[in-house]
Simulated assay, not measured.
Amino acid sequence: MGHDPDAVNDAQMDALIRGLDPLRELKTDEPLTLREQATLQRIMAQPQQRASSPASVSARRNLPLVLSMAVTAVVAMIAIVLVWPPATPRAVALTPPPLQFSSSSQPIGEVVSMAQRMLTNGHHSAPAAERKVSSLGWYLQMDHLPSGGTSSVIAPQIIDLTWQADGSGHEVITAGVPYLADGSTPPDPDLAPAVGSQLSETTYPAGGFGSPIDHIPGNTEADVRELLSAYWSPVAADPSASDIITAVSNAFGSWTLTDEQHAHILTMLASAPGATVAGAAVDRAGRDVTVIAADSTTNPDFRQLLLISNETGRIVGTEDVRLTPLGDLLPAGAVTSYTLWETR
C-alpha cells in the first residue's frame, strides 16, 4: 500500500484540533459534567459523522480538548469535530465568508454611548435576567466533500434552553438553514439535516445543568461584573476586551440579560484595553450591527468579534476569526465559529 502524503496520524490530529480551537483554557483531568456528556452525545449523533473514521476516534479520545470552554464551571460549549478524509482537496472553502465591514472612524466610546441610549429608551428586555437562551450557531466542522466539490456545507444549529435554580432544565437543538461556504444553497438535501429537524433533546435533572451562578443576577455594574467573572475569572480584576468578550460568550450560553445589564457590559468594554471598532456590518441573520473587535489575549492566533445591534443596542452575537493560516487547511481570516442571539 502506497504512502498517502495527506494522511494524518493521531498526534497530528491532536495538534490540528489544538490549533483550530479559538477558546482559552484546557481541562483534561476532570470528569465530564452531565451537560458535557449531553454535548458529546449531540456531537457523535451528527449525521455527517463517520464513526469508523480514525480521526473520529481521535476526536472522541480527546474530548476534553475539543470541549475546551473551561471556565469555573463549563456552561457554554463549542464543539469542533474533525472527520478527516484520506485526502482533503486543496483550495476548498470550508468556512463562512467573513463579515464585510464598512469603514468606520467612530471611537469605541461613541459606539457605546449610542448603544446605551438605545438601551435606556428601548425596553427590549424583561426587567430581570432570565434563565433561558435561544441562539443560532455554527462551529467549525469538516467532512468529506463530494468528488469535485469546492465548498463545504455550513449547517447552523438552533439551541433553545431553559433551566431552573436547582440546576434542572431542558434543551432542544434543531437544524437551521444550511448553506455552502461560498454563500449558495446546498444543491443536495442529503448534505445537511432538514431545516427544523430535531438534532437532540436533553432534560437535565436537578443539579444536572452546571452554572457557576444560579441566582438571578442584579442590574448594577457590580452585579454584572460578578456574573461575568464567574464565567471567565480574569474579568474580576482588570480584564482586557478579549476577556470581556469571552465572558459574554460563556454567560450568554445560560442567561438572557436585561437592557441595563447589556449597558454595563458595554461600559466595561469601552474602558478595556484591546477593543477597536471594526465597523458596521450585516450579520448572518440579516441584521445591521456594529462590530467591536479584540485580539485574543490567551491565543494570539485568534480575533474575537462582538456584534451590537444598531436597532436595539443589545449584544446580539460573537464570532471567532483565525488570524494566522493553519497550513493548507485554513487561510488567515477564516471564521471558525459564530453564535447569534435574539434572532427570533
Rank of each mutant, 00 (worst) to 15 (best):
I292G: 15
E201S: 15
Q304V: 04
A251H: 08
N219G: 08
V335H: 07
V153I: 14
D259K: 00
S134G: 12
P89W: 05
R18V: 11
V291G: 14
M1N: 14
A263R: 00
Q198N: 14
I80T: 02
A236K: 15
E201I: 15
G286L: 10
K27S: 07
P193E: 07
P186A: 03
R303V: 03
V75A: 03
V66S: 02
S56E: 13
N9M: 14
W163Q: 03
S296M: 04
A272E: 15
D320R: 09
I216C: 06
T202N: 06
S104A: 13
S134A: 12
T202E: 11
I17V: 15
T276F: 05
I80V: 01
S105Q: 14
D223S: 03
Y231S: 04
A129C: 05
P217N: 10
G19Y: 01
V81H: 06
A59I: 06
L326D: 04
P31H: 07
G19R: 07
E260W: 00
V8H: 11
Q261N: 11
I244W: 04
S103G: 11
A237L: 11
G286K: 15
P98M: 09
V282A: 05
T72H: 05
L266C: 01
I265C: 07
R18C: 03
L340F: 10
L269M: 13
T267V: 00
Y231C: 04
V248L: 05
A281I: 00
N9Q: 13
S151K: 10
T258H: 08
P64G: 03
S271I: 01
D182I: 01
G207T: 13
A51D: 14
D6S: 12
A181D: 08
G149A: 11
D288V: 00
A51P: 03
S58E: 02
P212L: 09
E311T: 12
D223F: 02
A128E: 14
A7V: 12
L228V: 05
G274C: 11
F209R: 08
P85K: 10
A91H: 15
I292T: 15
A194C: 01
P187R: 15
T95A: 13
V74T: 02
L340D: 09
R42G: 08
R60W: 02
S102P: 02
E260P: 00
K132M: 03
V81A: 09
A206H: 09
P146I: 03
W232A: 10
A70R: 01
